[in-house]
């Protein structure tokens, strides 16, 4: 077993344990913090895959922005910090069947897909290649500009929904 395999097992098990705790702990803030730990584990798996930029994106976006958004959303809600109700509903078997079906179909797809492998040797500065192809007219420039339009739509939409109206004050 090589060193990177040991590290992979370490990070993957840490991710799974943290993900399990996200859905089982009763304090919502603690669940959000375990979510951060789980996302950190995924970031370290990206590091092992030599995808440094993806690891940085994982930390900057998922931990820096989305997890913080979740924490704020939890703090906005009232009186749900300590959930005291049972953690199982009467229809848990239906959810379990759906989860098993999803797991089966997803793993079958992963198993059947021919995944492209990275070319041997040094591929060069991946961030530089990504930056060049993002604004290359023959590659991804249209998705790049559409992404900014999508972001502005999300920004305006979220402000329009979340901003308290002037009349209510």
């Amino acid at each position: 077993m090589t060193a990177s395999q040991i590290f992979f097992l370490l990070f993957a098990s840490a991710t799974l344990v943290a993900a399990y705790l996200v859905v089982t702990v009763r304090n919502l803030i603690h669940a959000a913090l375990w979510l951060v730990a789980s996302l950190l584990g995924i970031a370290s798996i990206f590091v092992l895959l030599d995808a440094s930029f993806m690891a940085t994106v994982e930390i900057v976006l998922y931990i820096g922005a989305i997890a913080i958004l979740i924490v704020f959303a939890v703090m906005l809600t009232r009186r749900v910090m300590e959930d005291v109700g049972p953690q199982r509903t009467n229809t848990w078997w239906f959810g379990a069947i759906l989860a098993i079906l999803f797991f089966a179909s997803a793993s079958t797809l992963i198993w059947l897909t021919q995944w492209p492998t990275l070319p041997e040797g040094d591929v060069g500065n991946t961030v530089l290649i990504l930056g060049k192809s993002l604004v290359d007219p023959s590659k991804y420039v249209v998705p790049f500009e559409i992404a900014s339009v999508l972001l502005i739509v999300a920004l305006i939409g979220s402000i329009a929904v979340a901003l308290p109206s002037k009349q209510s004050e």
Binding site: L69, L76, L151, S158
Partner: peptide, 12 residues
């Protein structure tokens, strides 16, 4: 809710 709007803008 003000905090939430700030973090929404930050996410974008």
């Amino acid at each position: 809710v003000q905090y939430y709007i700030f973090s929404l803008v930050f996410v974008i």
